[in-house]
Computed example of a mutant assay.
Amino acid sequence: MEQERSSYLFNKYVSRTCSPAELKEFMAIVKNADDATVIDLVMDNFWNQSPEVELNPVKADSILTKVLSSDAKKDAKTPNLSVQWLGWAAALFIICLATLYFNNKTKTTPPAANQTAKKVVQSDKPVELLTVKTGNEHQKVNLPDGSTVILNNNSSISYPKVFGVKRAVTLTGEGYFDIRHDLKKSFTVHTGNLSTVVLGTAFNIKAYDRDHEISVTVTRGKVSVLDSNAVLAILTPNQQITFNKKDKLSNLNKVIAKNTVQWQESDIFFDDISLEEAAQALSKRFNTTITVENDSSKKCRFTATFLKGESLDEILKIICSYNHAQYQTTAGGITIKGDGCE
């Protein structure tokens, strides 16, 4: 029965009258059988079906040699070849090649695939992770891609020394993220089973182990929040999602985002910044005109952190002492003077 079905499908294939389903069925037989089996099935059934029209013996031998070039059929029967047989022979030759291709593909791995696998293995190097933990003070962390996070008290973040194909970090506690935009690489913050995915935006995550809930609040841009692979919400500015770690339920709320991130708004982080850049930042924060008079002083660079809500006078005293400068307050604003830092 199987031989008759295979022969029937072969005949339909040769005459190009196969339906899509029949073609699929026939190619499955070709794929799953070995080459000798396929040839035997079709040749034994069709051997006596060709008319008695004789071909030139030289031409017949040439065609037969091409069709039966496989070692599997060196002992094949030799028929009288007709015009119809030529169609069968050509189709049989194609099937032989297809069968050999399918069999070889399943038995051996192509060189290109081996090369790809080696590349994957070679590139699968251990990733060096960095971890920053805070105690009773906030800390600003500069991530490898230029993004930043300000950690709240008793928080930690782990991240790779260099981002690879993915940008991903793990947070415990609370952090305010300002993510550098990258259309090709999303940025993911893992907090237990919850993941926060962005392209480039600013948002706050609160995920202390002791708390029953995780909250994500957006101040700029757009954020996707996922529980494993299920999307819980897509947040825009002034939206917050809270996720109960126990019952796995979430709530989406409208909030005033600046109130949520107020814990870090009084923090000032000057990280390898020029005196001129610091003056501009302080002018904006305190709504006061601050200028640096001497060009050589403008280029002075320093690092300083202010976490206790220091006044402008307190901040200026400290940064001027770092940079061998003095400041003077007038009706028009504040002027920083100095001879430079060299």
Rank of each mutant, 00 (worst) to 15 (best):
K246M: 14
N152A: 00
T134Q: 03
K299C: 03
T106H: 14
V231M: 11
A257G: 14
A168L: 09
K298A: 06
V58F: 08
K258C: 14
S7G: 00
V58R: 12
S156K: 08
S215Q: 14
I214N: 09
P79H: 08
Y101S: 14
S158L: 05
K107M: 14
E22C: 05
K66S: 04
T106E: 15
W47L: 15
Y101W: 13
K31H: 13
G333N: 09
V121N: 01
K73D: 03
N153W: 04
D271L: 10
D295T: 13
K185T: 05
I39N: 04
N56A: 06
R285L: 03
N104D: 14
Q139P: 01
D61H: 04
I334E: 00
G332W: 06
K119T: 11
A202H: 00
E128L: 11
K133I: 05
V216E: 08
K166G: 02
L81W: 02
S7R: 01
I234K: 12
D267W: 07
L194W: 02
L143F: 01
I157V: 09
I29H: 09
S321E: 14
L81V: 11
C18P: 07
N136D: 07
V255Q: 11
F302Y: 14
F286W: 05
I205P: 06
G333W: 11
K166I: 07
T201G: 10
T170C: 07
I290F: 02
N154W: 09
K31I: 01
T191R: 00
S82L: 02
Y176N: 04
Q139W: 02
P237W: 09
K185C: 05
L226P: 07
S186A: 11
E52H: 13
T330C: 10
L64R: 00
I29P: 02
G309V: 06
Q49P: 06
S15T: 10
S158H: 02
L23P: 03
A89M: 09
T288F: 11
K74I: 05
L194M: 13
W47P: 02
K125S: 04
N253R: 12
D35V: 14
F163D: 02
I63S: 01
L130Y: 09
H212Y: 13
V255P: 03
S195Y: 07
D313N: 14
V38I: 15
A230Q: 15
I179A: 05
L232P: 09
L316S: 00
V30M: 04
K74Y: 05
F163W: 00
E265H: 11
R167S: 06
K24I: 05
G200E: 07
Q49H: 12
P160W: 02
K317G: 12
N153I: 01
T78W: 07
A60S: 10
L252Y: 06
S155T: 02
Y327I: 09
L23K: 03
V255K: 01
K299H: 12
D61F: 00
C96K: 10
V14D: 02
V197Q: 11
L81P: 04
V261C: 07
G173C: 08
A98V: 07
I63D: 03
D295H: 13
Y8S: 08
W85I: 03
I318N: 08
K206F: 10
K166P: 01
D34R: 14
E22H: 03
G173D: 04
M1W: 05
E293T: 10
E277V: 08
H212N: 15
T242V: 10
V198G: 02
T148M: 08
L68F: 03
T289E: 13
S224N: 12
P57Q: 01
T78C: 02
P144V: 04
